[in-house]
Design a binder for these strands. Sequence first.
DNA 1: GTCTATAGGGGGATAGAC
DNA 2: GTCTATCCCCCTATAGAC
Lengths: 196, 196
Amino acid sequence: MARTQGSHSDITGPRIQTAALRLFAQHGYAAVSMRQIAKEVGVQAGALYNYTPDKQSMLFGLMRGHMQDLLATWRGQDLPVDAMEQLRVFTGFHIRFHLERADAVFIAYMELRNLSPENFTEIETLRGQYEDALEMILKAGVDQGVFHVPDTKIATLAVIAMLNGVNTWYRAGGRLSLDQVEAIYWDMVHKVVAPN
Amino acid sequence: MARTQGSHSDITGPRIQTAALRLFAQHGYAAVSMRQIAKEVGVQAGALYNYTPDKQSMLFGLMRGHMQDLLATWRGQDLPVDAMEQLRVFTGFHIRFHLERADAVFIAYMELRNLSPENFTEIETLRGQYEDALEMILKAGVDQGVFHVPDTKIATLAVIAMLNGVNTWYRAGGRLSLDQVEAIYWDMVHKVVAPN
DNA sequence: GTCTATAGGGGGATAGAC
DNA sequence: GTCTATCCCCCTATAGAC
C-alpha cells in the first residue's frame, strides 16, 4: 500500500478503489472479476496485487472506509441541545451523506454476505455504532418527554430504514429538490416519534 | 417444465426451486453455481436444464413467482371500508407475508441487477402494482381527511421501506413476539400518516 | 429424465523479467 | 510497480448414451 520508489502507487491506488467501488455497486462483488477492475484502471490484472492481498480485502476496505467516514463525519457535526433539533439534524445529515455516496451505501448493504466472518463482524460493529448515535437521540427525547416511541431500538431501525429508502428512488433533477426531500422526510420522521 | 413420461419431473422441479431459492439468498445469484444447486438437489448439473433453459431464467422465475404471490395474496384480503383500518390491515399483512418468505424477499431486492433488462422491467412493474395498492389507501385517507402526508408517493415508499426493515432484524424466538412487532410498527405507521 | 463427458471460456492468484 | 505468462481451478451449457 505504501509508496515505494518513483512509482505510480499514489495514483493507481485511488483509481483502483474508485473502479472497484463502481463495478461492485453496478454488477455485484461476485460478478466482477479482477480483470475487469484492472481494465477499467488501465493496468494488467497482476498489478492489482501490489495494492491488495486479495479481492476480499478490496471489498472489506471499501466497506470499512465508508462506515468509518460515516461515523467520523457524524461525530464532527455540531449538535443542538434539544432532542427534537438533534433528530432534525440527523435526518438531514443521513439523507445527504447517503445520497452523495450511493455506490458505497449500496455495497455496504448488499455485499455483507460476501464478507468473511471476521470482516462481517467488524462492519456490523461500525453499523451498530451509527445506530447507537440515533438511539441516544431518541432515548434523550423520550426522557425529556418530547418523544413517544414504543421501543427505541425498533424506532431507530425503522427511521434508518425509512431514510435509506431515499437512495432507491431519488435522482438529481427529478420531481423533487433535495430540500423538498429533506422537508418531506422530516415531516414523517418527526411524526414517528411524536406523542400519540 | 411439463411432466413427461413416468419421470421424477414433478418432484425434482420443486426441489430445484427450493434449493436455488435458499442458495441464492444465502450466497447471492452470481456466487452460486449450477453444480451447487444440483448437488443440493441430488442430481447432476446437466439435469437442471430439463427444468430451466438457463440460470437467468431460474432467478427470474423465483422473483416473478414471489411478486405474483404477493400481489395475489394481497388482492385476496378482505378489506374494511375505513382507510385507517385498511392501512392497519396492510401493515400487518406486509410484515407477516414478508417474514414468512425471507429468502424470496431478500432475492427480490438484492438480485435486481442480475436480471436481464426485459426481466427487470417485468419485476419492477409487479413491484409498482404492489406499491400502488398502498398508495391508493393513503390517497383515500387523505381525501377523507383522516390522513395527512406531504406526498403520497413518497409516503408509500417510506412506509414500505420501514416495514421491510423488519426482515433484517426479526428472528423467531427473539425479544419480541410477532404480535408485539406488529403493534409497534402499527403505532409508527399510523403516526406517519397522522395529521400534524 | 438423468447420466457422463466435454466444449469453450473465465476465474483468482503467483512467478519472474524489466 | 507493472508486465507477460501461466498454474490450476471452476464455470455454463450442450451432446449423446441409457
